[in-house]
Each structure stands twice: as structure tokens, then as C-alpha cells.
Design a protein around this nucleic acid. Structure first.
Length: 445
RNA sequence: UCCGUAGUAGCUCAAUUGGCAGAGCAAUCGGCUGUUAACCGAUCGGUUCUUGGUUCAAGUCCAAGCUACGGAGCCA
């Protein structure tokens, strides 16, 4: 057998005999000439079976190959401009071919399919070009986020998934039976991050989070992955600097490493190239005013109703979209009303009705991809807020204790991986950004 | 939870006023030496989402339910 290669490296083997192992992505025949597009996970290469150049038995196997049959192919790599593939431009003239398994009736054909059908076959759908490209970009986005933070002196500190108390809204918790005691799947690692910064200064956690929200939108998953940095001695302004640096690096890495994948998913890369510093920073007060101006300017009564907002209300998704559309880059909105935000956010001095919080809204209608804030670091105020929310101090004893032993001002944020992937890839639903989406009515496959 | 749309072959969809259940793709067989979702010929393929009702006759009309999709709220 010749050297086994990965198809992504095919250009390096021009003129040599190689072996590739993979699955038949598609096949088209011309009688004595058969074109087999083979995928091996790293890329795709056109393998050409020509009857005169192989033995009769091997040619018959090639001629009878079905979509997704698994094969080992040996042959010579030759440049050919006509050859499709990833990277393409090279093809393999088949000398020998070994069939591992002949697939029967592969359900995902090269034609169109509906969402439900594809989601029911997600375990197979991940083989399709578009899904392959998206999930590769997802992996790069995660790596880029971690690389950037590691380079900035952050330490990865893992936080638990099974937790004794709520991190956010108590109504969206998944309860699990912990040997007879109730416990909950984590909605966030933030509270533990706050403990960890007192040991390590700058930390982040990365992992799955769970929210039992009855949300059924293009932006919601029941199980989603979040990266959460937390920084000691950090102000809201410094937090925005960190968020901006992180997002810019991530987009740049995707552009640098994935031109091929971005082309497969037909992403308009001009919009990604525009993601450069600085991002606009507007206060909640200004944002409300901007929305009111937009509502006034439009003649469409429906749009007017959608944009209508009174000070103190949280933004709905049409309003987030309208705000983001003013800019061609992500935009920070800071100092939200305290009443619509979580119990741990620091009130603005002299103006307790707003708090030191900041959301980053992605362009093109992708909505909030980051939420962050300065955390309350005084014990009294934090205790009051926990009481006010009816959360029960007992479960938060350890968290409150952090304010007794060298408490310092600090801040942090969470960035939703799937929303970030959806935005960068230009997808219309987060269900394609994660290998196996958990949605309101779906936990299969 | 609310609003809207849809459910017909393995898949994507047609079916006129209530009057014979149809096409493309896939699959199977045959043909073809440069295909790019090839092409040409043939074959196979149906509990029209479920239950009940109206009618000589229901994919089509009525009622209830189920499921999916899109949107809202809530959120990352």
C-alpha cells in the first residue's frame, strides 16, 4: 500500500502514488469513466476510475459505489483544473480500490431537505459540506478565544456543572436528583469565577450551561456553551476593552484560517473584515433615545409599535436588531436599568436605578452575544439584593464569604459560543452551530 | 404560553369549483471516456398526520387533537 495521506495535503503529493481512506460523498458516471468524490474528514478529492487502468473487478466495485460507502483508494495524484474537491485542483487516478462497506439508501441526498428531516438525521447531517464547514469554524472560534485569553494572562479554571444554587433566574433551572437532595445544572460558572479570581487574578471558565427556558427562537438553545472571563480590579470600561480585543481576534482568526469554509457557507466576508476597533459604546439612556427617534422616523405603524420603548424596559429582539443596524460592527450598550438585570450587578454611584452592566450586540440582527458587568463587592448590598430576589442566603454562604476576605472591585462577562458562531458564519439559526442541538422540543439524536 | 403557516411516495413539492394520486430527486436495471446537484431510457415506490363528521363522492369542506416550521416574550 502507498503512503496514507490526508486529502487536505493532496497538493504536496502531485505525481506520487498515495492511499486515501474515506467515504463516498458523491459519484457520477460516464460509462467506462467514473468520478468518485471522496471525503476523508480533512477534505474532499475527486477519484477517477477508468476501466482500462484497473482490473475488471475493482472497476465494477467503483461503478457500483453508493453515497457514503466506505472505501480505501490507492492511485496517483495528478493536477487537474477540472477536479472539484476541498482543496480541489488535484485528482487521484484510481489504481486499486478496497470496499469496506457498501452503504444502502443513505437518506441525505444532494437535493434539498426540510429542517425537521435534517435534525432527525443530525448524526449523518454533520457529514455534509456546509455542516462540516460550520463545525470546523466553531472549533477555531473556541480555540481563538482561549488562545487570546491565555496570552493575556488569564487562567482556565473549571467550574462545576452540578451546583447547589441558581446563578441566574430560578425558573429556568434543570433540577437533578443528587442522592436524594435537589441539585441544579449550571446556568453559569460566574459565581465560582468570582471565587477563583481571588486566587488567580484573571480567570475564565468554558463549558456547557443549561437553561430550561421555554424559548423557541433562532437564538436559543437549552444546552449551550459559554466562555466566561472574570477579572479582579477591573472596571466596566476595562471590561469593554477586553471584550472588544477578544471579539476582534476571534473574527480575524476565522478570516485567516477558514476562507475555504467561509466560501462553502457563502458568508459575506466583507462584513467580517469590517470588524475592527473601536466598537461604539452607547449608554442605555442613549439607546432608548435612538430607538425612540427611529420609531418616530418610520411611517410603518407596525415597525413603530415594534420599536416603541419606554425608559426602564429591557430591549426586545426587534429593538436589539434595530439598534445594531445603526452600526456595521458590534456595539456596546452599558448602564442598563438595575431592575432588568441580575442581583450581583453594581449600581451606578448616585444613580442606583441603573447598574454597571454592558451587553455586546452583534451586527446583522444576531442580538446579544456578550453580557457582562461590574459585580457588587460590598457584603451588605449583596445580602440585601439576595433577600430582595428571594434567593435564600443559605445556598450563597460561600459566595457572600468572598466579600469578607479581601473583597475587591471586579468584573466579568459571558460570551455565548453558539450565537457568536451563528453571527460569524451568517447562519439563520443556532441549531446548526452546535453538533447536537438541544432545543425546546428536541433531544434526539 | 400566545400569534401565524404547514403536514400528500425515502426526500422536496404539485393536484383547477369537492370528481381517476402526479412530478423531480433518491433507489433498482440498462447506455455513455471528463463529470461538477451530469445526461438519456426503463422499473419500483402512497394509512394524502390522527380521530370523528358532512356528501353519491373528501388530499380538498367542518370539528377536535398531534407534530413541525416562523415570530413574540425571556435570555447568552
Amino acid at each position: 500500500m502507498a503512503e496514507v495521506i490526508q486529502i487536505k495535503d493532496i497538493a504536496r503529493y502531485a505525481g506520487q502514488e498515495v492511499t486515501v481512506r474515506g467515504w463516498v460523498y458523491s459519484k457520477t458516471g460516464k460509462g467506462r469513466l467514473q468520478f468518485i468524490l471522496l471525503r476523508d474528514g480533512s477534505g474532499q478529492a475527486q477519484c477517477v476510475a477508468f476501466k482500462r487502468e484497473m482490473d475488471a473487478e475493482a472497476f465494477e466495485i467503483a461503478r457500483g459505489l453508493t453515497q457514503e460507502s466506505s472505501v480505501v483508494i490507492t492511485g496517483e495524484v495528478r493536477p487537474d483544473e477540472r477536479a472539484p474537491g476541498i482543496p480541489g485542483g488535484f485528482e487521484i487516478g484510481i489504481r486499486d480500490l478496497q470496499l469496506l462497506q457498501q452503504a444502502q439508501d443513505y437518506p441525505i441526498t444532494p437535493k434539498e431537505h426540510g429542517t425537521e428531516f435534517l435534525m432527525n438525521h443530525r448524526h449523518l447531517w454533520v457529514r455534509s459540506n456546509r455542516q462540516w464547514a460550520i463545525l470546523r469554524i466553531r472549533a477555531t472560534i473556541i480555540k481563538a478565544m482561549r488562545d487570546w485569553l491565555d496570552d493575556q494572562g488569564f487562567l482556565l479554571v473549571d467550574t462545576p456543572i452540578i451546583t447547589p444554587a441558581a446563578g441566574e433566574e430560578t425558573t429556568t433551572l434543570f433540577e437533578v436528583d443528587y442522592f436524594g437532595d435537589p441539585a441544579f445544572l449550571a446556568q453559569t460558572g460566574q459565581l465560582y469565577n468570582e471565587a477563583n479570581i481571588m486566587a488567580f487574578g484573571k480567570v475564565y471558565c468554558f463549558g456547557p450551561t443549561f437553561r430550561a427556558e421555554k424559548s423557541k427562537t433562532r437564538r436559543h438553545l437549552i444546552e449551550f456553551w459559554m466562555l466566561e472571563p472574570e477579572i479582579a480590579f477591573c472596571s466596566l470600561e476595562e471590561l469593554m476593552d477586553i471584550e472588544e480585543g477578544l471579539v476582534i481576534y476571534v473574527v480575524a482568526q476565522v478570516l485567516e484560517k477558514h476562507s475555504r469554509e467561509l466560501a462553502i457557507i457563502e458568508r459575506d466576508v466583507k462584513k467580517l473584515r469590517a470588524i475592527t476597533a473601536p466598537f461604539a459604546r452607547i449608554s442605555y439612556d442613549d439607546a432608548v433615545e435612538r430607538l425612540q427617534e427611529l420609531a418616530e422616523a418610520t411611517d410603518d405603524p407596525e415597525a413603530k409599535a415594534e420599536l416603541a420603548i419606554a425608559w426602564g424596559e429591557d430591549f426586545g429582539s426587534p429593538q436589539e436588531t434595530a439598534l445594531a443596524e445603526i452600526f456595521d460592527k458590534p456595539v456596546f450598550v452599558y448602564n442598563y436599568p438595575t431592575a432588568v438585570k441580575a442581583f450581583y450587578m453594581t449600581p451606578v454611584e448616585g444613580r442606583p436605578e441603573v447598574c454597571r452592566s454592558v451587553d455586546l450586540l452583534a451586527p446583522e440582527g444576531y442580538g446579544e452575544i456578550i453580557g457582562g458587568s461590574e459585580r457588587i463587592h460590598e457584603l451588605d448590598l449583596l445580602e440585601q439584593n439576595i433577600d430582595k430576589m428571594g434567593l435564600g442566603r443559605e445556598a450563597y454562604q460561600w459566595y457572600l464569604e468572598l466579600r469578607k476576605f479581601g473583597t475587591v472591585p471586579h468584573a466579568g462577562f459571558g460570551i455565548g459560543i453558539e450565537r457568536t458562531v451563528a453571527w460569524i458564519c451568517g447562519l439563520n439559526h443556532v441549531r446548526e452551530t452546535i453538533p447536537y442541538a438541544r432545543l425546546l422540543n428536541r433531544k434526539y439524536p
